[in-house]
Amino acid sequence: MLEIKDLDVHYGGIHALKGVSLKVDDGEIVTLIGANGAGKSTTLRTISGLKKPTAGSVLVDGKDITKMAAADRVGLGLSQVPEGRRIFTSMTVMENLELGAYRRRGGDLSKDLNGVFERFPVLADRRKQLGGTLSGGEQQMLAMGRAMMAKPRILLMDEPSMGLAPLLVQEIFEIIAQINKDGTTILLVEQNANKALQVAKRAYVMETGRIVISGDAAELMKTEDIKKAYLGG
């Protein structure tokens, strides 16, 4: 469904991605884990089109979209929950959600809004509040709900658990599993490798701009190297 091949990305003189390839199949949760600065976010930003690669390609359903503008990729069913949530803080919760559906001209949004409010009841209570007045966890839910309003086929999630209390982290991961169960393919970037490997089917491990290990998530959890480097054991 989604495939990237030999991606090279530079930030000025910094070589951030060095030939990264990965694949996400229909219906999977795939996770991309690794230390800070390994290139996980850059990989997601290149997939969503915010960053242009210097070499390599991004394919959706076998079609090369490397040169397509970020905004047009949303129309293909790619939706991103960005790092740091990036909600529109001086717009209301409702307006944030409507912007999520920006690409879907016409049509009735109420059904999808209800779907989001069912998944995140707290957003329904806060629908008239400005995004900036929400707590960190609520903002994360808003960012996820906003992305779901685009009716994505593939959801790209960048560090959804970052900065959240443990109880909320648990809740967020349950919601991720539920979204996947309801039919959305997910590529999940996480520093919380433990949780990410539990929810994912397959995993890729990144180090300094390269993918160093990949495989079945459950298998990787048992690997000594992974345990030592990423699971704190």
């Binding site: 969503s48 970020a70 905004a71 912007l99």
Partner: peptide, 24 residues
């Protein structure tokens, strides 16, 4: 309006607006 919301979104965060599918 839709266009007005896009304008506000771009002025707040152009990259986030792109991720909504807004032509900046």
């Amino acid at each position: 309006t839709r266009v007005g919301k896009a304008m506000r979104a771009v002025s707040q965060d152009a990259d986030a607006a792109r991720l909504m599918g807004i032509n900046v």
